[in-house]
Design a protein around this nucleic acid. Sequence first.
DNA 1: AAGAAGTCCTGGGCGC
DNA 2: TGCGCCCAGGACTTCT
Length: 274
Amino acid sequence: MPELPEVETVKRSLENHISGLTISEVDLLMPKILKTPSPQSFAGILAGKTIKKLGRRGKYLLIHLSGNHTLVIHFRMTGRLVYSPPGTAPAKHTHAVFRLSNGHELHFTDMRQFGRMALLETDRLDTLAGLKDLGVEPLSEEFTREFLKKQLKRRRVKIKLLLLDQTFIAGLGNIYADEALHKARINPEKTAAHLTIREIALLYRAIRDVLEEGIANRGTTFRDYVDGMGQAGSNKEALRVYDREGKPCLSCGKPVVRTRLGGRSSYYCPSCQK
DNA sequence: AAGAAGTCCTGGGCGC
DNA sequence: TGCGCCCAGGACTTCT
């Protein structure tokens, strides 16, 4: 599931290859993945636009184009955007093909059809639902220990659920939230407002550490995730609790437990995370 | 108003 | 072996 480190890796792997290229033609094969504009006008707006630079906000990939336009992509669980040589047959579940001025193509593929794209004027990005409501970027200077402390104080929700709330912190998903809580030795069910000063300091550090480690390892691949060059990431080997139910905790050796929180799996060590 | 539950999807894993 | 069932999960909508 592409979370912040995976989207950042897609961005970094693509930007040197596609920056400066012009989009010559677009095939939208699955119109429903487009939030805006209408499928009829999508290809027409994109044709002739040059890719200026790539950006990222939370789990959203931003492709900034000439003519004050930005293509916004959210991969959800199984989305991929892969730079492909001329004539590459689109893989199954390919929903959009962008032909570029050097003959290469960008293929957007998503088995589960949950991923979404939007195309709008760059200066109107703050009108896009989801994107406009995102919380702080966890790797930015804006995200400080003081900020986290202040925000947690009044929240009576379980800390794991708050970490998954994109309007609180942008970019954490189920994997990195579990990893951060394990690293900080905090039980996922603990009420946010009840975290001690020490726990907040540990959590702050852990969030940044697990995200930076994920980026350094070029993302976590279980089955579907690949970067912009179609390559898997290696961060699965660095995971300490996620998807390790019944296996020994790498800190204390007791079995990792799986529970359900907010309809999602939560992996943690009951011995280390009280 | 916050929080819970339902919705969208497909491939894989499971039981029989 | 093969069929059918159910689960995984991010963000958005709807309900309480």
